[in-house]
Design a protein around this nucleic acid. Structure first.
Length: 259
DNA sequence: TCAGTTGTTTATAT
DNA sequence: AATATAAACAACTG
């Protein structure tokens, strides 16, 4: 699930339900998912602190607690759930933050991703690595800047978190489809007009996806059609193409999206 | 049984 | 430095 809009959804619910609460204790159900600390160390750092305002950069969620912070990445199947009552755990609950008044649960079926403890700002920065600007803040002008000088294919470049942060496989296919650009188009072949269209599609797709808290599987969206068996383009009805680009399955319309 | 999957990292080669 | 490719991580579905 988690691309930028999904993680933004997790951030919103964490802010709404968990922000400002006291942490009583942290229960680690799956030690392997706490990537850079023991359960004890995570618990000691968090217990007794008050959760601050959750922040998001790309697909990363930052949960501040006094000076420290927990960094969460959701891999392909992670999510964050708030439970006000002490209900039974879900099979895939991995880490539970017991707060005064409820629990924030990190759930992850496939166990890609995980949680990192950052004790200060410097450690936080180091752990997040060199991420590009958050995709939500990137408009056509900034996008042109970011792509200038790149020689790779457009799809893998947009998925490169160091170029800009937050876009995944579904989102990039959706954006390219909307901008009518082939996923295999080399970046240098895109002129100013196409780059502007790309920047506008990027903003529009993210803005529209945001209230859903995910990439919508709505009619009129590529994502709504891509799962079907003889999937057709929601715009022109052509049979959609499907092939690996940059190691991931790309779906595009051979008629709408030309080189 | 086997291919495929919303994400990253690492190694290797170019 | 950038780029392309493959494999690994992991667990489940069809």
């Amino acid at each position: 699930m988690p691309e930028l809009p999904d993680v933004e959804g997790f951030r919103r619910s964490a802010a709404r339900y968990a922000g400002g609460r006291l942490v009583d204790r942290v229960e680690v159900l799956d030690h392997a998912l706490v990537r850079n600390a023991t359960a004890q160390r995570l618990g000691r750092a968090l217990a007794g602190t008050r959760l601050g305002r959750p922040d998001r950069h790309g697909k990363w969620l930052v949960l501040p607690a006094d000076g420290a912070a927990v960094l969460l990445h959701f891999g392909m199947t992670g999510l964050l759930a708030w439970t006000a009552r002490d209900t039974e755990f879900h099979v895939h609950d991995r880490v539970v933050f017991h707060c005064r008044g409820g629990q924030l649960r990190y759930r992850n079926q496939r166990r890609l991703g995980g949680l990192w403890l950052a004790r200060d700002q410097a450690e936080r920065k180091h752990l997040l690595g060199e991420l590009g600007p958050d995709a939500l803040s990137v408009g056509p002008d900034r996008l042109e800047e970011l792509l200038r000088g790149r020689r790779g294919l457009i799809k893998p470049t947009l998925m490169n978190q160091k170029v800009l942060a937050g876009l995944g496989n579904l989102l990039v296919d959706e954006i390219l489809w909307r901008a009518r650009i082939q996923p295999r188009a080399p970046v240098p072949t895109l002129g100013p007009r196409r780059l502007t269209a790309l920047g506008e599609a990027l903003q529009a797709v993210l803005r529209e996806a945001m209230p859903h808290g995910r990439v919508p599987q709505a009619p009129g969206w590529l994502t709504g059609a891509r799962g079907e068996k003889d999937a057709r383009c929601p715009r022109c009805g052509s049979l959609l193409r499907r092939a690996a680009v940059g190691g991931r399955t790309a779906v595009w319309c051979p008629r709408c999206q030309r080189a």
